[in-house]
Structure formats: structure tokens, C-alpha cells
């Protein structure tokens, strides 16, 4: 059974300059607990596609089938992590994690227990009463991840979640995400513009090309789990990355470097 099915989906924006086609005829099926990364250059519509999957943007044509039913409005079965942690500065780490639980009016005691467990899972045990401005960027993004998971959604949407972090923290958080995904099985849709990151994390990479945003290639990543940094230097990894780079650039009208 599929978790999410994207059916001949298009999105067009109208502006003063004219109409811009952000997404062109997207067809994609995402399985239960699958880790899918959307990769492509800026302007390929990967973030737009993620927001359409979260029902934050309405498609111009086509539809999203979520758990075998058409998705018409946002569902609480989705957790979102953005590039910026956007934590509430006036709340402690724990209360930030609890925000979705409050909005959804979940059982307080249970939510708190889960929040503590999640914070422990991301290595922030003991930081519950701190405020966001006392944390590093990487730690803040970990809190944002816990906030996305607090209401135990079955789908996690991540919009370039590690793009604002330094390269080392970025690698570290990538592996941490995989470790969490192992414990908390979720369907993950992860947007990135980093090809190595896309390959290293994913079961499948969806390579997208710009103007108009379209799927250029879908690759099954046949690398063993748990993933390690060393895998980047294998021939298989290199052939994946070459292939993605080639399709992204060919469709973009440029030449592969």
C-alpha cells in the first residue's frame, strides 16, 4: 500500500511578468516508511512540491492521494522541519517541542513524556529548561526535529533542514536523522540541493530539473544500511551522483561539469 501518491500534478503561479510553471506533470509514489529525497538546483520546484504534499499549497492540476484518500487540507499526520528552526524564543526547549501537542490538544502528561524521550533521542537530555538562544544552530534544529515528531505523525516533511548548518554539523545531523528514522519509523520526504546528502540518506532519490520543475530521474539507492560516510567513496555512490548531476544539468539546458 502506498503512503503518498502524486497524480499528474502541476502548479502554476501568475505574476506581473506572466505565468510561471513551478511544477510540471509530477507523478510519484512514496511507500510506507520510505526515505525519499528530492534533489535539484534552485528553481526546480522541490520546495513547492514538498509544500503541496503538506497541503500548504494547492496544486493547479492533479492531486495528492494520502493514505488512499485525496488530500484536501493540512493533516496532523504530517510533521514539518524547515531550513530555519523557527523556534519560539519565549519558550523553553521542552515547551517548544510541546507546541504541536498543545495546538492539537493532546494529553499533556503523555506528550511531555514523549517530548522528554525525543529530546533524549537527539542528545538534548538536560536542556529541557533552556531557551533557544542558548543553543547552537545544530541543537536548535534538533529541537525543531523533536517538535515535528511530538504528535507522532507518520510522515516527516523536511525542507532543506540542514542547509543553514556548517558542513560538519550537517553530516552529523544527517546520520542522526537516519538513526532516529530507525527508531521512529516514518515516511520521510527530504528536500536538499546537495547531491551527496540526497544519496547518503535516501532509499530513493528524486532528481528534479528546473523551468518548469519536473522529475528528471528517480533512482533506487542500493546501499546497505546503516549508511556510513565511507560509502561516498565507493564506485556505486559515484555512479549515482554522476547520473543525478547529468540529468539535472541536461534538463536545465546547461552542460555537465
Amino acid at each position: 500500500m502506498d503512503k503518498i501518491r502524486i497524480d499528474s500534478l502541476s502548479k502554476t503561479y501568475a505574476s506581473k511578468v506572466g505565468r510561471v510553471r513551478a511544477l510540471e506533470n509530477i507523478n510519484l509514489t512514496i511507500g510506507h516508511n520510505e526515505f525519499v529525497t528530492l534533489v535539484g538546483p534552485s528553481g526546480c520546484g522541490k520546495s513547492t512540491l514538498l509544500k503541496v504534499i503538506g497541503a500548504l499549497i494547492k496544486p493547479s492540476r492533479g492531486r495528492i492521494i494520502f493514505d488512499e484518500a485525496p488530500l484536501l487540507k493540512p493533516t496532523a499526520d504530517v510533521g514539518i522541519v524547515f531550513q530555519e528552526p523557527v523556534l519560539l524564543l519565549w519558550r523553553t526547549v521542552l515547551d517548544n517541542v510541546l507546541l504541536p501537542a498543545e495546538i492539537l490538544r493532546l494529553d499533556k502528561a503523555k506528550a511531555k513524556k514523549r517530548a522528554m524521550a525525543l529530546l533524549k533521542l537527539v542528545g538534548l537530555e538536560g536542556f529541557e529548561t533552556r531557551h533557544p538562544d542558548e543553543l547552537s544552530g545544530g541543537m536548535q534544529q534538533r529541537v525543531a526535529l523533536c517538535r515535528a515528531l511530538i504528535h507522532d505523525p507518520s510522515v516527516l516533511l523536511m525542507d532543506e533542514p540542514f542547509a543553514a548548518l556548517d558542513p560538519m554539523t550537517r553530516e552529523e545531523l544527517g546520520f542522526e536523522l537516519l538513526r532516529i528514522w530507525d527508531v521512529e519509523k516514518k515516511t520521510v520526504v527530504f528536500v536538499t540541493h546537495s547531491i551527496p546528502e540526497a544519496i547518503l540518506l535516501a532509499d530513493r532519490v528524486v532528481a528534479m530539473s528546473p523551468r518548469p520543475g519536473a522529475i528528471a530521474r528517480i533512482l533506487d539507492i542500493d546501499l546497505a544500511r546503516p549508511r556510513t560516510l565511507d560509502m561516498q567513496f565507493t564506485d556505486k555512490f559515484k555512479s549515482y551522483s554522476d547520473e543525478i548531476r547529468a540529468v539535472i544539468h541536461r534538463r536545465a539546458g546547461g552542460s555537465a561539469p
Binding site: 509544500k51 503538506g54 497541503a55 500548504l56 487540507k73 493540512p74 496532523a76 504530517v78 514539518i80 524547515f82 531550513q83 530555519e84 523557527v86 504541536p100 495546538i103 492539537l104 504528535h151 525542507d159
Partner: peptide, 14 residues
């Protein structure tokens, strides 16, 4: 309010 935060809130149907 930062737009991503508004989107987060909207995704929770607040």
C-alpha cells in the same frame, strides 16, 4: 511572524 512558522501552524490546523 516568520513565514515558515506560519506554515507550521497552518499544517497543524491551528
Amino acid at each position: 511572524v516568520p513565514p515558515p512558522l506560519m506554515e507550521l501552524i497552518r499544517s497543524l490546523s491551528a
